[in-house]
Design a protein around this nucleic acid. Structure first.
Length: 757
DNA sequence: CGAAAGATGATGGGGTTACG
DNA sequence: CGTAACCCCATCATCTTTCG
């Protein structure tokens, strides 16, 4: 990779011998420049780019030296200086590197391979923001020329240190900063414990590169250097360093054509309406305004679509019944920049996928759209801003945590423009929020690859050590199966994905070497994973865990109808509930996952009449005694407008059931069940409960184990041996484990081996 | 012997694209 | 802009092979 980059850069540097009419231009009126690109430019491409420069005007001239090297001549030295001061310039988004001619230096000798840039070093730990630290952090980018250390000034200055660095574009970056620091560490870094181990996220070091001439505008960054940064970071696996991938500075706004006009006018360009991005202040509406005003030409047609309230209106017209007024208020609040929980907002219609947000400690899915991709493709322009506004001060937007997303069809120039205007990073399809992927493409498997990778690497780590099988069991139960829980609690992962992890854990449990494909397993993994009282070890299989977790969201849909995601989901899918079963399941990835377990939910969900006023006698599951929680009818015809709800079965003012009526309505069996129930007289809302559990709360653990038993029940051997007795024995754990192995037939005894061989 | 891996084919859903 | 055909992928069931 490095070689590739270098080789493609190498064409830039040398200026071939070209005859230039230098006789009439003095040394101090000339500039030599080149375009900085990573990919080599085709002939056609360079023609097109330079055509954007315009023909030479009266006051200044340009001439091509090579493919991408340029020679500029200006009427006066002052004019040239102005151009230099206002650098960097870009031509169609590609940075233009300008260099003056040194005395007794010919055009051919000008070194176009290195140029100075200012580098902002962010995120240095408290107390470590020293000159030396900044220097060693930036040394890997290039030769350090100067350090700007103004911590006593304005507040924002303390956030980073600026270092002027000479970048050589032919030179590959040295590996990540941690190595550099330890290698040529000086006194200030040696005593620094932070870098001895991988720092935590909040200690991440950010290096932001800004252009060299930017004494006045320190927030603009140099794209070329930044690209190099990105390369370097990916090589260093981005551990210590978070590189902002936001694109060009103010470049695209002032494209090359401007260069000709502005300079020939001899005036400083004033189009630098860059917001003071160092202040992380800006309300949502402010952002919107900025987008619209900056990119008006493009966004004019879009403007009305920015109306988020209309988004709700659309939903309203689709279905009159569900209008969540409170939610409309929430969305409206977004618009005016008030504090709301929630990370994701959508500009254009409902063309986004989803995001996950935490609220009150739990994970709630935030479902905004069905399929991400059709929307992305169809929409001419799609943009969303991920916002995380702290509740106390809604006016602040943490730009480090915010990103802007644009669909593929959005013109790259526009994306760049928006990014630079808003000073927000661009979010690409692979981006994550809370370690969960925001966009799931065609392959769910691929989207969650890294979660799997984590488990794999962990297990590979354990394999290095010598551990007993009992320890293996513990590790699997306590760590390995818990790692993907976070992501499994939201998404229904592909079955084969789960199986792969199961397989890995199986091999690990048996202690098989990883290189061997086949091994001797006297007992099926499924049987080993059974609950302890049935003769297994009580490990959780991935798919079942996933199922239970996703189904829990279905339960939450009923049990906590006030949470944001439930309200959104109700609004978005007015005709579907997790209980209603339909053949064609539509919706977002998350929603489809939830709907898939309607049968399971139906078997466990039951309404508990606490006042009974909202429970329909017919159609709602409210009688826990039976499988489907529906009462057995004797005479349904008796139902009329007076007797529709459970509360109608209660004798008013007497706090007891109306036996006569109940016996009339229901079969003897059901009637008995009903009469045994607690009389619903409390002044409380009716409540959904999980009837399989004593306390009525959904329990993931229970469901996982039950599912696993279900699945394994096909296998014949479910001996009547009381396994719980074994585990309750007053023995050492490893003895008990040994006994279990003997009993189950897992121990490789001679008899067992003899049976096989 | 029996678990697990591999092979195979069917199925169905979603994305893509050509076409009107 | 909408639709239909087509392709790709995930998933599932079933059968076969493999191996300790």
């Amino acid at each position: 990779m490095d070689n590739k980059v270098i080789s493609s850069w190498s064409g830039v540097g040398k200026v071939e011998a070209v005859s230039v009419d230098e006789e009439d231009t003095a040394m101090e009126q000339c500039l030599v420049g080149t375009l900085i690109r990573i990919n080599p430019l085709t002939k056609l491409g360079s023609e097109w780019l330079f055509s954007k420069l315009g023909t030479s005007s009266k006051t200044w001239k340009w001439k091509r030296l090579t493919m991408i090297a340029l020679f500029f001549s200006f009427p006066s030295a002052g004019c040239r200086q102005r151009v230099l001061d206002q650098s960097p310039w870009t031509i169609k988004g590609f940075p233009l590197l300008l260099k003056p001619l040194m005395p007794n230096e010919t055009v051919q000798e000008v070194d176009l391979t290195s140029f100075p840039v200012w580098v902002q070093v962010h995120g240095l730990p408290m107390g470590q923001a020293t000159r030396g630290m900044a220097e060693s952090a930036t040394r890997r980018i290039g030769e350090v020329m100067e350090v700007d250390f103004r911590s006593q000034k304005a507040v924002w200055v303390t956030q980073y240190i600026r270092v002027k660095v000479l970048i050589n574009i032919q030179q590959a970056l040295s590996p990540g900063p941690h190595k550099v620091i330890t290698k040529n560490s000086d006194s200030s870094t040696q005593s620094n414990p932070v870098f001895s181990h991988p720092p935590r996220i909040d200690q991440s070091l950010t290096v932001v590169v800004e252009p060299s001439g930017s004494q006045v505008h320190p927030w603009r960054r140099d794209p070329a250097a930044e690209r190099k940064e990105t390369i370097g970071a990916s090589r260093a696996s981005g551990k210590e360093q978070r590189v902002y991938k936001s694109d060009m500075g103010a470049g695209p706004v002032r494209a090359g054509t401007d260069l000709g006009r502005e300079v020939s006018d001899g005036q400083a360009p004033d189009g630098r309406d860059t917001p003071n991005t160092t202040e992380l202040v800006g309300s949502f509406s402010y952002l919107l305004d900025k987008v619209v005003s900056a990119e008006k030409a493009w966004l004019e047609s879009l403007e009305h679509e920015l109306d988020l309230v209309r988004l709700i209106g659309k939903e309203k017209s689709k279905d009159k019944e569900v209008v969540d007024e409170e939610l409309v208020q929430v969305i409206k609040a977004y618009k005016v920049g008030q504090a709301v929980e929630g990370p994701l907002m959508v500009f254009k219609g409902l063309c986004f996928s989803h995001a996950a947000l935490t609220s009150k400690g739990g994970l709630d899915p935030f479902i905004l759209d069905e399929q991400p991709c059709p929307g992305l493709r169809k929409a001419k322009f799609t943009a969303g801003v991920k916002l995380k506004a702290p509740m106390e001060d809604s006016q602040k937007i943490n730009k480090g945590k915010s990103a802007i997303f644009c669909s593929r069809n959005t013109h790259p120039d526009m994306v760049r423009g928006m990014c630079s205007t808003l000073d927000i990073r661009k979010m690409d399809l692979g981006s994550k929020y809370l370690r969960l992927p925001l966009f799931i493409g065609r392959s769910k498997k691929r989207a969650f690859e890294d979660v799997k990778e984590k488990v794999f690497s962990k297990v590979a780590d354990w394999k290095m050590r010598t551990l007993s099988q009992a320890e293996h069991t513990t590790l699997i139960k306590a760590v390995a199966t818990a790692m993907p829980l976070y992501c499994m609690s939201t998404f229904l992962l592909p079955k084969c994905w789960c199986l792969e992890i199961d397989r890995l854990l199986k091999d690990f449990w048996w202690g098989f070497p990883s290189h061997k494909k086949r091994n001797f397993t006297p007992r099926a993994w499924e049987a080993i994973c059974l609950p302890k009282d049935v003769g297994g070890l009580g490990m959780r299989k991935m798919y079942e865990t996933n199922l239970a977790l996703v189904a829990k969201m279905g339960w939450k849909f009923y049990s906590s109808p006030d949470s944001l995601w439930v309200r959104l989901a109700k609004l978005k899918y007015p005709n579907q509930t997790p209980l209603s079963h339909s053949d064609s399941i539509q919706g977002s990835v998350i929603w489809r996952g939830i709907l898939q377990f309607a049968p399971l939910l139906r078997s466990g969900l039951c309404l508990k009449p606490r006042i009974g006023r909202s429970i329909l006698l017919q159609g709602d599951p409210w009688l826990p005694g039976r499988v489907d929680c529906m009462p057995e009818w004797r005479d349904e015809a008796l139902l009329d407008s007076n007797i529709r709800f459970v509360s109608d079965l209660v004798l008013e003012g007497e706090n007891r059931w109306n036996d006569v009526l109940i016996h009339h309505l229901f079969s003897a069996h059901s009637a008995r069940d009903i009469l045994r129930m607690q009389v619903p007289t409390q002044e409380l809302h009716d409540w959904w409960l999980w009837k399989k559990e004593q306390n009525g709360m959904y329990s993931v653990k229970y469901v996982v184990l039950a599912e696993q038993c279900d699945r394994a029940s096909g296998s014949p051997e479910l001996s009547s041996f009381s396994w719980s007795k074994l585990w309750k024995l007053n023995l050492q754990d490893r003895l008990k484990f040994f006994l279990w192995k003997v009993a189950v037939g897992v121990l490789k005894t001679r008899g067992l081996l003899g049976r096989i061989l």
